[in-house]
């Protein structure tokens, strides 16, 4: 068995990278997949908080890389899902503590034992971002339907293209269909029109996401909320299932997409 390394990145901060990593990881793990999440945001870690594992950190990513512990010791196992692990970031160091080749080595060591390695990239396009994409087999770029987030996503996709880190897939997060209907928000189509990449998920705006993150209980654990379902759909699509984009996403969108794909 060899794992797929999936990096989630965005360029802009605050669009939902960490939340998505947590939710997709939970959704994959609840389908019986073995999943390791790596928090690549060294110095500003918070994937542990969103997953509710903060109080169990002993060793972190930098400890593994600098040889202070074995890889297994830094992997925190989630109690709710037996096959979900987190390798937390160091909080007291910065991005230069890790190099892209460290990340590649680390992932290669993990690959034989798991199905998925999800890497949470920091915002920006500097060292931390390069660390996060270096080992990636697949990159998910996440954006919100607003002009500045889309602009940054465009830049990141350009860099990923130049580095041949394909195939890139897009998640559009926090879509508010009422605002779209009133013409106050970019629609999914507007975003795709500009970015011209493969779409893997549309996540509706949902207040439950904030509540769930604060509690450390990712939404896709129970999967009744709209956002939770959307994240589960992303996980299913990652696993190769053909999941139609549902009504709550955007009616009839899928057909139109198929029609216009280049």
């Amino acid at each position: 068995m060899t794992a797929k390394v999936v990096t989630i990145t965005s360029g802009k901060g605050g669009v939902g990278k960490t939340t998505s990593v947590a939710n997709i990881a939970v959704a994959l793990a609840s389908r019986g997949q073995r999943v390791v999440c790596i928090d690549g945001d060294i110095g500003l870690r918070n994937l542990d908080v969103v997953l509710g594992l903060e109080n169990r950190i002993v060793y972190d990513l930098v400890d593994v890389i600098e040889g202070r512990c074995r890889l297994r010791q830094a992997m925190i196992r989630d109690k709710r899902l037996p096959e979900l692990y987190l390798i937390p970031a160091a909080q007291t160091r910065d991005k230069t503590a890790v190099s892209p080749s460290d990340m590649i080595r680390l992932c290669d060591e993990l690959r034989p034992d798991v199905d998925w390695i999800l890497i949470d990239s920091p915002a920006g396009i500097e060292r931390g971002f390069r660390n996060a994409i270096a080992p990636a087999d697949r990159v998910l770029v996440i954006t919100n339907p607003d002009v500045s987030a889309v602009r940054d996503a465009d830049r990141v996709i350009g860099i990923l293209d130049a580095e041949e880190k394909g195939p890139v897939s897009l998640i559009i997060n926090r879509v508010n269909s009422d605002m779209v209907r009133r013409g106050e928000m970019l629609s999914v189509e507007d975003v795709l029109d500009l970015l011209a990449v493969h779409l893997i998920g549309i996540v509706p705006e949902d207040e439950n996401v904030i509540v769930a993150s604060n509690r450390g209980q990712p939404l896709s654990l129970d999967g009744k909320s709209r956002a939770g379902v959307a994240f589960q759909n992303i996980a299913r699509r990652l696993m190769g299932e053909e999941v139609p984009f549902s009504e709550l996403e955007t009616p009839g969108l899928w057909q139109r997409l198929l029609g216009r794909r280049r």
Partner: peptide
């Protein structure tokens, strides 16, 4: 002669 799309930052 340039092939598009020219993305942000290019």
């Amino acid at each position: 002669w340039v092939r598009g799309p020219l993305r942000s930052g290019t």
